[in-house]
Structure formats: structure tokens, C-alpha cells
Amino acid sequence: MKQSTSASPPASGFTRRKFLQGSGAAAAATVLATTGGEALADHHGDEVIAGETTITLHVNGQNRQAVVEPRTTLLEVLRYQFELTGAKPVSADGSSGASTVLIDGKPMMASTLLALSVRDKKIETVESVSQRNSGAVPAAFVEYDAQQCGFCTPGFVVAVRAFLDKNPNASEAEIRAGLNGNVCRCGTYANVLQAVIALVKGGPRG
């Protein structure tokens, strides 16, 4: 593979203007040219990483070292290096939601994030997220019997926390739509719904 590290100028004798095709191209080029400031000096930048490398991940308030390959997912690091086994490996494509974690506060699927792509991000797993608000989300799940085999539960707990942080006064329809990214094969949805409704109303323990 060509290992070019810098863009070379067009080989032919055309001027730059020649390469702007389509209505609005010149205006779009202006936007692209003026977007973004100086690249940060400490950013990973254009470095190509191959093979094993040691990285630092910021997980649950701690900086932790992991040895990863480019193909290593965040879920694999959490489970097999950090022993944070709450996030579950269910679906390769993240469609189950069982590996939901918070990345800079937003719910994402650890199974579809490469570990290298979340350097510099704040990662929170269910082990930390479930403690928030005095553990109100797990308490509601227990109160309303919102799990059966429990395998999907950690993903649900993180998703519920992220959903409630953004939608504290959600309606039932909004809860159903908002938690659509988590799948429970036991079919505990009705009880999960009741638990979240209780949390919106002030929690099972007030």
C-alpha cells in the first residue's frame, strides 16, 4: 500500500479552480478552507498505528493503561483487561445495546467502538453509572422486577440513566422510543417501562 504521508499537488497542469465541480463548489471550498483552526500539537494526528500499542484510557474517573491492537474494541478492553464485565458482548454490530457505556456523557456501544478511537474521551461504564443518584436506576429495576436473566440489564441501566439525564420528564411514548436501542430476549420491557416511569415520577424510594 502506498504509504504517503502528505498530499502531493495535482499531477496535471490544471489550476485548483479546475477541480471545483458543481454548483456551489467554490462556496463549499471556502467553508472547508476556513473550518478548523490549528491542529493541536499533542493530537495523535497522522500517525499510523499497527500492531500492539499501549494506550491510556480514562475510565470511571481513573486513567488506566491498556495494551491494544487497532482491531481491539473498547468492550474487549473493559471486560478482559479492566475486568469491568458489566457491559456485555451480545451483538457484533451493537444492535442489542447490551454494551452501552457513556462516552463523554453520551450513550454509545462499546462493541462498535475501537479502543484507539476513545483515547482522550471520558468513559463511564455501568459499574460507575449505576451508582449515580444513590443508585436510583438499579433500585427501580429491582423494585419493578425489570430483569429476568439479567444479561441485557447493565446496558439498559446505562441507557436509562443517559435517557433520564436528557429527558427527566419523559412521557411513556418517549420512554418507549428512547430505549428502543436495547433488546431484552426475556421480554421484560413492560417492567423496564414501569421502572422508568417510576423514576420520572420521583423514584421508587421517593
Binding site: 502528505s6 494526528g45 500517525e47 482491531r71
Partner: peptide, 30 residues
């Protein structure tokens, strides 16, 4: 396995992409 890069500028991004189909893939959200 594959090699990985996370460039910060469009110019660097384009330089990292191969003209051969299938040799490089663009990763966004994942």
C-alpha cells in the same frame, strides 16, 4: 488486523486513503 490512523485535517485524511478499492476503509461512528 489492520493499521489505524485518526487524522485531524482533511489533507492528512486524504493522504491516508489508498486509491485501491478495499485497501482502506473510512471509519466514522463505527
Amino acid at each position: 488486523n489492520f493499521a489505524y490512523a485518526q487524522p485531524r485535517r482533511l489533507e492528512s485524511l486524504l493522504a491516508l486513503l489508498s486509491p485501491t478499492p478495499g485497501e482502506t476503509e473510512v471509519l466514522a461512528g463505527g
